[in-house]
Nucleic acid binder design. Structure first.
Lengths: 98, 98
DNA sequence: TGCACACTTAGCTAATTCGCTAAGTCTTGC
DNA sequence: GCAAGACTTAGCGAATTAGCTAAGTGTGCA
């Protein structure tokens, strides 16, 4: 494996790592049904707002989400919907493979 | 989020987490071109065989890979090819989103 | 039988991650 | 302007992860 290939896999892994957490998967799933503000997501998930905010910023920093501030609230939405395809493949892994 | 939904997201995250590492992504990519034994993969990747073996067993334990012992060698192959679609979506995230 | 090879398991340390609380920024309404 | 609300940033301890080396298991060949 060359150094550049290594760097490429590392960048790709960074994006996947952003998805590799139950709360962040929930967020992506929920945002597939439309934008949500941080407070709405915080209500749905059982953790403190700072924790939710950091999960959101992780997903945003790799380019999966985008945010928009309106008034005192910040709304997040999916920037790259194809990540939703992951759920289908995960189901295939969980069943018998395909 | 209900307790069962939470458990479901956790199980899904476990599968994604197995992919969230540069070496394991390389392995999946390489196995898309056919089965390989542990020693072949070890030669390609720049780490010790025990480390490669553990990466492989992680991917196997979540159901992404399967292995077959032939003689003194162990060959691994992709059990769920749809994980290869992840690479396409990652590229979309890296470019401008889609 | 015994040795070499292919691989896995175990045990260790260093580094990363996740949750929390506390504190800071910014907007809105009084 | 000030207080309250929405959010982010920072700093902490607990838990997980990734690499290594050493040791264990199993196969094949002399």
């Amino acid at each position: 494996m060359t150094a550049t290939a290594q760097a490429e896999y590392k960048a790709q892994a960074g994006i996947i790592k952003a998805l590799a957490h139950p709360t962040r998967l929930f967020i992506v799933d929920e945002l597939s049904r439309g934008e949500r503000c941080v407070c709405e997501l915080t209500d749905m998930i059982g953790v403190e707002m700072p924790t939710v905010s950091r999960h959101l910023s992780q997903l945003k920093s790799v380019g999966i989400l985008e945010d928009e501030k309106r008034g005192s609230q910040v709304f997040y939405r999916l920037r790259v919907p194809c990540v939703l395809n992951f759920f289908k493949c995960i189901k295939a892994v969980q069943s018998n493979g395909k």
